[in-house]
Design a protein around this nucleic acid. Structure first.
Length: 286
DNA sequence: GCTCAGGCCATAC
DNA sequence: GTATGGCCTGAG
């Protein structure tokens, strides 16, 4: 295994288990991670990561990039030192980082996420990978890579339903056609937040929330602030208690409030909103 | 059984 | 602009 000494705060467990990324599985004491043609084992021991490529290349540069180890968390959270919740949550989930995912894989993953849940989304991605992705062998075990767009070209709508996508099947089917006609999720990296978001919103099945997930988790747009039902709960109860309008306006308010690194605030608030600690407060008062 | 998920879209005012 | 119902399916 290769040793990667950490010089910045990082917590692998919080990062992987914060709902931003679906292609990991536990293999104690670490994790197997699949991402953009690579499969590797990754483990954290205190202030060090240890990794072992199982397929494709994995090196220091890739680890640093995909876990955004260059983001200065203390500087980012320093801008919210007066916030009622964030300093405490920052301490609690110290080292939770956003990830930098492959745009195509991220887009498909979150396209599958509408009105779904994490186990099901993970299952959908597994099924697509098993049926259409490349099979690789390592140490006697088979793994399947996330299907590239070319590998999904020609897949029928019925086959996508059969893969368990439900009403999301038609969205993915349309996306596959768009990509084979030249649309490149990766090219959106060059665009501004608003330009990239406008492009994403043109896709069938991509609304505000999913667009912001893709922008935040794969397109380097840290100002993106996805508002799902969990974030909406916490925004209504802790930040905008007098606001009674629709969630769409809440999202606009939150983006303005948290600013250009707002995505980090969102990720920490999301993790907190799903914790037993916060859920308990939802029943007691308010 | 039945409700509801990490939404989005079409339709109706 | 705002409100509602429908959508696939599995988990609780």
């Amino acid at each position: 295994m290769t040793h990667y000494p950490l010089s910045v705060p990082f917590n692998l467990r919080h990062t992987l288990e914060s709902g931003q990324f679906f292609q990991w599985q536990r293999r104690d004491p670490g994790y197997i991670i699949r991402s953009s043609g690579r499969i590797f084992y990754l483990e954290q021991r205190d202030a060090a990561l240890w990794y072992e490529p199982l397929h494709g290349t994995c090196d220091h540069a890739y680890i640093r990039s995909s876990f955004r180890l260059d983001d200065d968390l203390n500087a980012i959270f320093g801008t919210w030192s007066e916030d009622p919740l964030l300093p405490g949550i920052h301490r609690q989930y110290h080292g939770l980082r956003l990830m930098r995912q492959d745009p195509w894989e991220c887009l498909v993953s979150f396209l599958c996420s509408a009105a779904s849940n994490i186990p099901r989304i993970t299952g959908n991605i597994r099924t697509l990978s098993r049926r259409y992705g490349t099979r690789v062998q390592s140490e006697g075990t088979s793994y399947f890579l996330f299907p590239r767009p070319e590998q999904l070209q020609g897949v029928t709508l019925a086959a996508l339903y059969d893969a368990g996508l439900g009403f999301r099947a038609k969205f993915l089917h349309a996306l596959i056609q768009r990509v084979s006609a030249g649309f490149s999720p990766n090219a959106l990296r060059q665009a501004s937040y608003h330009a990239a978001k406008t492009e994403l919103l043109r896709l069938h099945g991509i609304g505000e929330k999913i667009a912001d997930c893709v922008l935040l988790f794969s397109l380097d747009q840290l100002e993106a602030f996805p508002v799902d039902t969990w974030i909406e709960k916490i925004l209504r109860s802790r930040y905008f208690p007098t606001h009674s309008g629709p969630g769409k306006h809440l999202a606009t308010l939150a983006r303005a409030k948290f600013g250009r690194f707002g995505g980090y605030a969102q990720q920490y608030l999301y993790h907190y909103a799903r914790s037993p600690e916060f859920r308990a407060t939802q029943f007691s008062d308010e």
